[in-house]
Amino acid sequence: MLVFRSLVFNLAFYLNMALWLVVGLPCFVFPRRNLQNLMIAWAGSSMWLMKVIVGTRVEARGLENLQQGGLLVASKHQSLWETFALLPYFDDAAFVLKRELSWIPLFGWYILKSKMIPVDRNGTISAIKSLTAKSKEAVEEGRQLIIFPEGTRRAPGAEPSYKSGTTHLYKRLGKPCLPVALNSGLFWPRRKFLRYPGTIVIEFLPIIPAGLKADEFEQQLQTGIETSSNRLWKEGLEERERLL
């Protein structure tokens, strides 16, 4: 049954995405915010499909820590799930993502139209300057800049591997940072076909104020995200094993 439900969901997820890509084409002649609303609707429909087909619910904790306006958001990255599921919690999110995604026909057009921030992960000086400039523009427009500090998906419980990009932006932008912990990798594992029933928990941690020293910020960020994500991992693992 798990394999069957996973198959049905994966088909439904990508068909649903294709449908929204086509339905959203008229948004290209309207202001960017119209497209943002469409993306939030797509994210909601995707989570609904996962709940109905697989039996995976979502629980959000720490909603009192959410802050709109210009903000840096640093999220744990375990799955494809958070690349869309974070959208409904912010009024104007801008993801930092690998530039190769912007090359995908049609899908990449949406990335460019919505002014997401593609980045060259080779880390050249010009790439860093471009990332910084576009990120400043986003937060000055009052957007919430979402970045994954480890740069790529990491399995739940894996040794953390934080890159310097988040700290670089924190210092350059002069904005507070909202850390985000989660356990999505238990239910939507990276590079795997199966999807598991249970409860994906996303936890918005207390805001880290602007103006801290780099090493102090790094310590608060990594300690907060890793401690909370490991707690959620153990909590979710018990539930997943109980349901299987």
Rank of each mutant, 00 (worst) to 15 (best):
L2G: 14
S6V: 10
F9Q: 07
F9E: 05
L15M: 12
L15V: 12
L19T: 10
L21Q: 03
V23A: 13
V23C: 06
G24K: 12
C27M: 14
V29Q: 04
F30V: 01
P31M: 02
R32P: 03
L35S: 05
N37Q: 12
L38P: 00
W42F: 11
W42E: 09
S46L: 13
W48R: 14
W48M: 13
L49W: 13
M50R: 08
V54A: 04
R61C: 06
Q67H: 10
G70V: 08
L72G: 03
L72Q: 06
S75K: 06
H77L: 03
Q78F: 02
E82I: 12
F84W: 13
A85I: 04
L86N: 03
Y89N: 00
D92P: 00
D92F: 00
A93P: 15
A94L: 02
A94E: 05
F95L: 05
F95R: 01
F95G: 01
R99C: 08
R99T: 08
E100I: 03
S102R: 09
W103D: 10
S114M: 13
M116D: 00
M116P: 00
P118Y: 05
G123N: 11
I125W: 05
S126M: 06
A127K: 09
A127I: 11
I128V: 15
I128E: 10
S130C: 01
K136L: 14
E137I: 03
G142T: 02
T152N: 00
R153E: 04
P160G: 01
P160D: 02
Y162M: 03
S164K: 14
G165S: 12
T167G: 15
T167M: 13
H168V: 09
Y170N: 09
K175A: 06
K175Y: 05
P176M: 12
V180P: 05
L182D: 07
G185R: 07
L186I: 06
P189W: 10
Y196R: 13
G198M: 09
I200K: 06
I200S: 04
E203T: 06
P206G: 01
P206W: 03
I207V: 15
I208S: 02
P209R: 09
A214S: 15
L221E: 04
T223D: 15
T223Q: 15
G224H: 03
E226Y: 12
S228H: 02
S228F: 00
N230H: 11
R231Q: 09
W233A: 03
W233F: 14
L237R: 13
